[in-house]
């Protein structure tokens, strides 16, 4: 981490106070206070149309654990875990190739992976919609190929093909996972790359020299050493995926709603804020547990360099 001066605040209390006050006040007023209010609402219930009474009830949490919502929570995790697995499997070879590329190629490759990540999430999701929908580019392309094949078959007096049936690529679970992978892949590659880049190359060379194959070297030497990077890659992919709102909202169908969509519905259409508050705090607790697990899992290794 950054070198710090680490001077006692008592040496210059005036400067300390004037630097401390604005960010701390802002943090308390517009971050901690709003989160606290939502937290208290999660123990309340609707009184009439707009009033919310906080009476310390756990009914909202109990409601959140009924089978319908529990299955959505589990589904969100399943989607996120599947997404993370695909990102890890797809991202590891990329991170590896970038790590051992020549210095100049390396920065270009990193840029290549990062560039899509700079464009708006909404636009990236929209781009996938345009690609996957029934009259989308993928189906359009398949249609042309299909007609081509049909034409060739017609010329050689082969069997006639049935009319082209567009594939259902959008508004289903497949589209949601594809969208999540599309959005999260750069997040996975970066921490993997920074962990692999720190590896002592002589260890890999030693393993290869001593007769281990590339695959065995990966599994037995590289992977254990890169574990902190793998752990933080999993974390930065898993957490935003569990709480994803736009991807399931725009790409998902009726039965591919995730937990964030339920939260949004409670705060907008359904107008059940206490229940929405309870679900969003469940999501936050889960997130904090994941972060705590990661810091237990990869304790001191990150601090080494």
């Amino acid at each position: 981490m950054a070198e710090t001066v680490n001077e006692s605040w008592k040496k210059s209390p005036g400067m300390f106070a004037s630097l401390l006050a604005p960010p701390t006040l802002f943090l308390f007023a517009f971050l901690l206070a709003p989160l606290f209010v939502v937290w208290t609402y999660s123990f309340g219930h609707n009184e009439g149309l707009t009033e919310i009474t906080v009476d310390g009830t756990f009914a909202n949490y109990a409601h959140a654990l009924n089978p319908l919502y529990l299955s959505i929570l589990i589904k969100s995790f399943a989607f996120a875990a599947f997404t993370t697995f695909i990102c890890l499997a797809a991202g590891f070879p990329i991170a590896l190739a970038i790590t051992f590329a020549k210095a100049k190629t390396k920065s270009w490759l990193l840029l290549l992976i990062m560039l899509p990540f700079w464009t708006n999430l909404l636009i990236r999701t929209y781009a996938l919609m345009a690609l996957l929908r029934t009259q989308g580019y993928v189906n359009g392309f398949l249609h042309i190929v299909w007609n081509g094949i049909a034409g060739v078959l017609h010329l050689v007096h082969g069997p006639a093909l049935p009319a082209f049936q567009p594939l259902d690529l959008l508004y289903n679970n497949f589209a949601v996972v594809l969208g999540l992978v599309y959005v999260q892949l750069p997040f996975m590659v970066l921490p993997l790359y920074s962990a692999l880049d720190r590896l002592d190359r002589s260890l890999l060379e030693a393993s290869l020299d001593l007769g281990a194959g590339h695959l065995r070297t990966m599994v037995q030497v590289v992977l254990p050493l890169a574990m902190p990077g793998v752990a933080s890659g999993i974390l930065v992919t898993l957490i935003p995926s569990v709480g994803a709102f736009l991807t399931p909202d725009l790409l998902g169908g009726v039965d591919s709603q995730m937990i964030a969509n339920v939260i949004e519905r409670q705060f907008k259409a359904a107008n059940d804020w206490p229940f929405g508050a309870a679900i969003s705090f469940l999501l936050m607790y889960v997130t904090f547990v994941a972060i705590a697990l990661q810091s237990v899992f990869a304790p001191k290794k990150e601090a080494r360099s």
Partner: peptide, 15 residues
Amino acid sequence: IVVPEICMGVALLVF
């Protein structure tokens, strides 16, 4: 950085 965006969104909405 760690709080899910949706949670921050609803917190600010309520506030």
